[in-house]
Amino acid sequence: NTKMVRFKKGDSVGLRLAGGNDVGIFVAGIQEGTSAEQEGLQEGDQILKVNTQDFRGLVREDAVLYLLEIPKGEMVTILAQSRADVYRDILACGR
């Protein structure tokens, strides 16, 4: 149940992230009207890879910085997997 989305970065990627470290990086929110939303990313999706950067094992701050450093107008390719069950557990633990 993995999906790959590809879009051109606007002012931002339009994602709020949660998790990090051993639990993985998850989409915690999506800005309305962004390409990330239009391409089908959803809250609870685990981000496995962005462009050439493996997101598994990253701390959340490093994942956020990586997304911020992608220049506006560059193509962004995100490999994600729907993991809403794991995401709910992360929220319940306050991570």
Rank of each mutant, 00 (worst) to 15 (best):
V13S: 08
G29K: 11
G20L: 03
G73P: 00
K49T: 08
G19Y: 03
L58W: 06
R6Q: 11
I30C: 05
I70D: 00
G24S: 02
V5I: 14
L48W: 07
L17G: 05
V27A: 05
R88K: 14
M4Q: 11
E69F: 01
G73H: 10
S35P: 14
L79P: 04
V13L: 15
F55C: 02
G57Y: 09
T52G: 15
M75Q: 09
E43N: 00
A28Y: 06
Q42V: 09
L65P: 06
G14F: 00
L67D: 02
D45H: 02
K9Q: 04
Y66I: 06
V50K: 03
V27N: 03
E43Y: 09
D89Y: 06
V13A: 07
L79I: 14
G24N: 00
Q38P: 02
D89T: 11
L58D: 04
E74C: 07
L68A: 15
I90P: 12
S82C: 06
L65F: 05
V27Q: 02
I25E: 05
V64G: 06
E37D: 13
K3N: 00
G19L: 03
L17N: 08
N51F: 02
A80F: 14
I70M: 00
L68W: 09
L91R: 11
L65E: 15
A84F: 14
V5K: 07
A18Q: 09
M75P: 07
G44H: 02
G33E: 02
D22Y: 09
F7P: 00
A63I: 06
S35G: 13
S82I: 00
D11Q: 09
D45I: 02
V59P: 15
E61R: 08
G29F: 01
E69H: 12
S12W: 03
Q81F: 02
E74P: 01
I90T: 11
N1P: 00
R88V: 06
I70T: 06
L48K: 02
V76L: 06
Q42P: 04
A18F: 12
V5P: 03
L58G: 05
V86C: 10
G14C: 04
T2L: 14
L58M: 15
K72M: 07
R56K: 08
G44P: 06
G29E: 12
R16K: 13
Y87K: 11
L58I: 14
D85E: 12
M4F: 11
S12L: 07
N51D: 04
S82M: 00
V50Y: 00
A18T: 12
E74N: 09
T52E: 15
L17P: 06
G19S: 04
Q81M: 12
F55K: 09
A84W: 14
F55M: 04
N21T: 14
I78C: 05
V23M: 08
C93V: 13
R83A: 10
Y87V: 06
E69T: 12
A18S: 09
V59E: 15
G57C: 09
R83C: 08
T2E: 06
A92H: 13
V86L: 10
V86W: 09
E74H: 09
V76F: 03
D45F: 02
S82F: 02
A92N: 14
G57D: 10
K9W: 05
G44D: 05
C93S: 14
D89G: 12
K9G: 06
Q81I: 10
A84Q: 15
D62C: 01
R56H: 08
Q31G: 11
M4K: 10
G10D: 10
A28I: 10
G29L: 01
D62A: 13
N21E: 15
I47N: 00
K3P: 02
E61A: 07
G44S: 01
L79A: 04
I30F: 13
Q31Y: 06
R16Q: 14
Q31T: 13
G19Q: 08
V76R: 03
G24E: 05
T34Y: 07
F7C: 00
T77N: 11
D62S: 11
D54F: 06
D62P: 04
K3D: 06
E43I: 14
Q31L: 10
K8G: 06
V76P: 02
Q46N: 05
V86K: 11
G14R: 02
R16S: 14
I30R: 05
G73F: 01
Q31R: 10
V64R: 11
G19W: 02
F55E: 09
G73W: 06
E43L: 11
F26S: 02
Q46F: 01
K49N: 08
V59S: 15
G10T: 09
D22V: 03
S35F: 11
V59M: 15
Q42L: 09
